[in-house]
């Protein structure tokens, strides 16, 4: 009951390695999200999945479809580019919001406004 596309052996091994390493990096990032102590530490964790994790999984997908359909399938580049550019933007905005809220409440460990 294992469903997967028929690939040549070398391609299957390379795709498997890419997907497994990407998924484990993403998982490590999310483990960091649950285990780290403060909010500012936790913001660093999801970037693992959004950068190298995502790139590896999408590279695996690209290679798989390129071998399967014997033509270059490039639209995962779009996905990777989009995630790579938008995740930092959301994180910057989120940290700005968190800094603003922490300063408004005079929480310790937050540098004051310049």
């Amino acid at each position: 009951m294992i469903q997967a596309p028929e690939l040549p052996l070398w391609a299957a091994i390379v795709v498997s390695l890419l997907i497994l390493s990407g998924a484990s990096l993403t998982l490590i990032g999310v483990i960091g999200l649950t285990r780290l102590k403060t909010f500012y530490e936790r913001v660093h964790a999801p970037t693992l999945g959004a950068t190298l994790g995502g790139v590896l999984i999408c590279a695996g997908s690209m290679l798989c479809f390129a071998v399967l359909q014997t033509r270059v399938i490039a639209h995962e580049i779009l996905l990777v580019g989009f995630v790579l550019i938008t995740t930092p933007v959301t994180l910057i905005l989120l940290v700005r919001a968190a800094l603003y809220r922490d300063r408004a409440e005079d929480n310790p460990h937050v540098p004051p406004m310049e």
């Binding site: 990032g29 500012y40 913001v43 660093h44 964790a45 970037t47 693992l48 959004a50 950068t51 790579l84 550019i85 995740t87 930092p88 933007v89 994180l91 910057i92 940290v95 700005r96 800094l99 540098p111 310049e114």
Partner: peptide
Amino acid sequence: LAIIITSTPGTLWAQHDVDTRRLLLH
């Protein structure tokens, strides 16, 4: 620079003041 710094795990662009030109990095 903001995108580069934030998308690199381990560093985070927190705030930049245009007048004093100072960057707060986490």
